[in-house]
């Protein structure tokens, strides 16, 4: 025993820190520092008027106040948040239902589907294509002279143009996002389901539970941590929606600014001719806050389904704050 003590005092812990150091260094330089400066510059007036730069002049909260003031009688912040959320929900609801269904089918011990790898690869494939290229393809297909666009004209009405209808334009964007991401979600959920102890399924079937009961009483509750993660990443991804609507709706989010997302707005403010860094900073900070709030709501609403939620309520809250 005595001999062992000095050996015990050799600590390998520092290696742990050294190994994770590169991540923190990169994070600090490329994520944390820009984040702080974004906050900082959101308090300045700083934009271009033609070839002259105005500022940076400290203006306090003026950039934020301006964002909450109506521009041409319209609340841009609210409008674009709404657009973003509508397109996200339109895409994410079918995506979750579809992915859950596929995940359950693929992991079912009873069905034992053959060629799983093949299917997994195929459903993941759309995600490998560049979003812009994928959107371009859909844009051409759904345009007035494209095959689907012409089909819509024939089926719905001769005056129907997909990209002139608010609903249809948003629908196409949501559909592209759905196609691109359901494979990813399916694979995540499959991993989640496979992480559930198989003996629970066996016990359930011995007890005579039918498929539906197994799904709602075992699979779904035990899947909830992964589900929360998937929902949350999807929400954050959804709030950052940019490339697909930018291609489909153009910079201004045609028709009638209905497909302009928050990030498209931010992009145009910061990289547009005025290069309004102050306003851009303020928009970034607000998107950050919106993301925080919505993540909180999603997290809360999903965790409620967990019977242990009450017990953990306090802890979860602490983590979030």
């Amino acid at each position: 025993m005595n001999k062992r003590k000095p050996i015990k005092s050799i600590s390998y812990a520092k290696w742990g820190y050294i190994f994770i150091l590169p991540f923190f260094l990169v994070y600090a330089v490329f994520s944390f520092y820009p984040m702080v400066t974004t906050f900082y510059y959101s308090f300045f007036e700083n934009y271009n008027q033609g070839l002259t730069t105005i500022g940076p002049n400290f203006v306090g909260l003026q950039n934020y106040v301006n964002l909450f003031k109506p521009n041409e009688g319209r609340f841009e912040l609210l409008e674009y948040t709404k657009n973003t959320m509508i397109m996200w929900v339109l895409g994410v609801v079918p995506q979750f239902i579809f992915s859950l269904l596929l995940a359950v089918i693929f992991t079912s011990v009873r069905l034992k589907i053959k060629g799983q790898r093949f299917f997994k690869t195929v459903i993941y494939m759309p995600n490998l294509i560049m979003a812009a290229a994928y959107s371009m393809l859909f844009y051409v297909m759904f345009s007035e002279v494209g095959p689907v666009g012409m089909l819509c004209k024939a089926l719905i009405s001769p005056d129907f143009v997909v990209f002139q209808s608010v609903g249809a334009s948003r629908g196409v964007i949501a559909f592209i996002n759905f196609l691109m991401w359901f494979g990813n979600t399916t694979i995540m959920l499959m991993a989640g389901i496979m992480g559930i102890d198989q003996s629970l399924f066996e016990a359930a079937s011995i007890d005579g539970a039918n498929g539906r009961q197994v799904f709602f009483k075992i699979t779904l509750p035990l899947l909830s941590p992964i589900f929360v993660y998937v929902a949350m990443t999807s929400l954050i991804g959804g709030l950052q929606m940019f490339d697909v609507p930018q291609i489909i709706g153009g910079t201004d989010g045609a028709p009638n600014r209905s497909t302009r997302t928050l990030i498209m707005w931010l992009n145009n403010v910061v990289t547009g001719k005025a290069r309004d860094y102050g306003k851009g900073g303020a928009i970034s900070v607000l998107i950050f806050i919106i993301t925080g709030i919505l993540s909180f709501i999603v997290y809360k609403s999903m965790v409620k389904e967990d019977p242990n939620a009450k017990k953990n309520k306090r802890r979860n809250k602490n983590v979030l704050l």
């Binding site: 994520s31 820009p34 974004t38 949350m232 954050i236 102050g278 900073g281 970034s284 997290y299």
Partner: peptide, 17 residues
Amino acid sequence: LLAALACAGTMLAGCTS
């Protein structure tokens, strides 16, 4: 949750002035 928040944090990266 942490992973999700970390992702949210990176949203702000790149928006620097």
